[in-house]
Amino acid sequence: MAATFASWLQDPARLVVVAEEGGRMVVGFAAGVVLQGNGWQIPARLGRITDAYVARPRRRLGIARRLAGRLLDLLYEKGVGTVRLAAAVQNEGALAFWQSMGWSDLETVLERAVPVEGRDPEA
């Protein structure tokens, strides 16, 4: 995980913001990335929020909203006009949070488990 964060900090397409408490302790973070469009349907520069987390004892203090707001400002400065993210359908709190910040449904991702006996054992 630490290596992943380190690589994000080196990647100019990635953005990571943190919430500090007392200038010493990180109590939350949010991360995003600037993606190139696919040429047929996705905007030429698409922002994606990949992570947003606040330590449980520090929730409901507006930290996530400030993290997301700062991340959006940085994405906008990089020329992004559209930002997407994914949230689990069962995570009603996260969906309500993002919807309250102006996000709306675009696509539904559906999943089907594959029985072990159906898989290619060589894969």
Partner: peptide, 18 residues
């Protein structure tokens, strides 16, 4: 997809900054 056994997992959300 639901007829084929799929179930909703995630929602993809979008917001315009413009």
């Amino acid at each position: 997809l639901e007829r084929a056994g799929f179930a909703p997992l995630q929602l993809e959300l979008e917001r315009s900054l413009d």
